[in-house]
């Protein structure tokens, strides 16, 4: 659907150095949304309409509240579009298309492990919430630049969920020093011995998701990955956002991140062909 979402909250998230923002919009999108889906939001100078920047920006749903008719978007100011978006004030109305794409799926039973790096954490919070509501065990592996980043990007709300959390930072300022995949491998190894049922969901830098997928394949654990690609239409009409996958016969095929994704089965993705 296309809505004029009213800005209810728009604020800095954590340290200003991190350039992170929280944007809460009122509108009916939450009613049908699920974790892993995204919206395409128009970024404009809100005082006067213009066609520069031209395209909508894809942003994941980081919070879905159907009772309050609200969605939460968490984003990093990355370039001109998000810079302009950051100027929207409470009460402003933003044109939002969504919910778009297909979200993550939840296993019927067992454990859901969330593995993420950087701001790839954002779409995982509503996923953790639905998994917990369904009685699944949830575990988080999260890697970031440093302590300031992890704290700015919402560590305390994750801690509020009361789930096991394995942190890593590149500089060792919080959690284990190094990459998130080190701890993931250790735990996969343990579970391989105990034989628990696990599903992994991952979102973050491409290299990390590729490494996570490789590990999961080694340990025969199903993994869903959330991909990014530049978008034009965001509804599957322009073929701008394709990702290369292999089908059952091993043939290379294209699917659209906006419509068929952004969540795909990790083992299908041909990483070298994708951005």
């Amino acid at each position: 659907m296309l809505i004029e979402g009213q800005v209810v909250i728009h604020e800095r998230l954590g340290d200003e150095d991190q350039r992170l923002r929280k944007l809460v919009l009122k509108g009916p999108i939450a009613q049908t949304a699920k974790a892993g889906q995204f919206v395409a939001i128009q970024v404009q100078d809100f005082s006067i309409s213009s066609f520069d920047p031209l395209l909508r920006r894809p942003i994941s749903l980081a919070g879905i509240s159907s009772e309050r008719d609200e969605i939460t978007l968490l984003y990093r100011i990355q370039g001109r579009g998000t810079e302009i978006l950051a100027r929207a004030k409470c009460g402003d109305k933003l044109s939002v298309m969504g919910p778009l794409g297909k979200g993550f799926s939840l296993p019927d039973e067992g454990e859901l492990w969330l593995v993420t790096g950087g701001i790839g954490i954002f779409p995982l919070y509503p996923l953790a919430q639905s998994a917990l509501a369904q009685g699944l065990t949830v575990r988080l592996f999260w890697g970031g630049e440093n302590q300031s980043f992890l704290e700015s990007a919402g560590l305390s709300s994750w801690q509020g969920l009361g789930i096991p959390i394995h942190l890593s930072t590149l500089d060792g300022s919080l959690g284990q020093k190094g990459l998130v995949t080190v701890q993931l491998k250790e735990l996969l190894e343990k579970h391989a011995i105990s034989g628990g049922k696990i599903r992994v969901a991952t979102c973050g830098p491409k290299k990390m998701m590729q490494a996570v997928t490789d590990l999961c394949l080694d340990y025969k654990v199903p993994v869903e990955v959330s991909l990014e690609e530049r978008m034009g239409c965001a509804v599957g009409a322009c073929l701008g956002c394709v990702v290369t996958l292999t089908d059952e016969a091993g043939t290379l095929i294209h699917k659209k991140v906006c419509q068929d994704g952004p969540v795909f089965q990790g083992e299908e993705v041909v990483w070298d062909e994708s951005c």
Binding site: R230, M231, C241
Partner: peptide, 11 residues
């Protein structure tokens, strides 16, 4: 990919 690039008021 990338197949798309935004330009001033263009694509």
């Amino acid at each position: 990919v990338p197949r798309l690039a935004e330009t001033p008021a263009g694509l």
